[in-house]
């Protein structure tokens, strides 16, 4: 029995060391690819609380630029939301679209979140057949790292997906721009939306359902 106890203690210690090693920086830090660094920087800029390991965003794509907007997409666990959206049982993930301003003449500070957008999303199986796995219009909400456009979606199948975000003119939601020379920023939305809505497409999102 003493031998058992010694081996038990030894192996438990090995297991504990293994777990602690896995807790260490090597496992949790993204690989040092350019993309991963961008994700990390984006997350830090979003001021996620330091103790919020449970709120880990999984990247889809980062820093796609369209007109005056910088667009990134992440996903994480489906989340309950206010105003009757507490039930998350039938959803697999929370899809989030982060939109910040690039250098612009519309009055947005560079890096500011852009409000009053209507953002439609489509998640399509990247198999050439165009089968839509999920689609809809994002809701606007705040998380601990700030405001964003997002939605809980059901995406039960692992696959490679194409993601399409469609951005409507903020004026559709009543957002206005000063047009006089003294107080106006100089630009108008029409200059950017002259050909209709703006879209960002990303192909090659390798997705598997996760336990968050």
């Amino acid at each position: 029995m003493k031998t058992y106890k010694k081996i038990l203690a030894l192996l438990m210690a090995v297991a504990a060391v293994g777990m602690m090693a896995a807790c260490g920086s090597t496992a949790e830090e993204p690989a040092e690819t350019e993309d991963a660094e961008v994700v990390e920087a984006t997350t830090e800029e979003a001021a996620a609380p330091a103790d919020a390991a449970g709120f880990t965003e999984y990247p889809i794509f980062e820093d796609e630029e369209v007109a005056f907007m910088n667009v990134s997409a992440v996903y994480f666990q489906a989340v309950p939301m206010s105003n009757g959206n507490e039930n998350i049982e039938d959803f697999d993930i929370h899809l989030e679209c982060d939109v910040s301003a690039l250098e612009n003449d519309l009055g947005y500070g560079v890096g500011d979140w852009i409000p009053y957008l209507t953002v439609d999303y489509q998640v399509i199986h990247d198999n050439g057949a165009g089968d839509v796995a999920a689609e809809g219009t994002f809701m606007v909400m705040s998380a601990s790292d700030g405001p964003h456009y997002g939605a809980n979606i059901a995406l039960p199948d692992a696959d490679t997906y194409k993601v399409i975000f469609t951005f409507h003119n903020p004026e559709e939601n009543g957002y206005l721009i000063h047009t006089d020379a003294e107080t106006g920023p100089g630009g108008l939305f029409d200059e950017y939306f002259a050909d209709g809505n703006l879209t960002v497409e990303y192909e090659g999102w390798d997705y598997t359902p996760m336990e968050f």
């Binding site: 192996l11 297991a15 293994g18 896995a22 496992a27 949790e28 449970g54 880990t56 336990e211 968050f212």
Partner: peptide
């Protein structure tokens, strides 16, 4: 996991399975 936001379950599963797989080989 349910009362704090300290747990990144994905990474905890990696840890648990790493220990389990090592124990399985041994």
């Amino acid at each position: 996991k349910n009362r704090t936001r300290l747990v990144d379950l994905g990474m905890w599963n990696v840890r648990t399975f790493t220990v389990s797989l090592a124990a399985l080989v041994l």
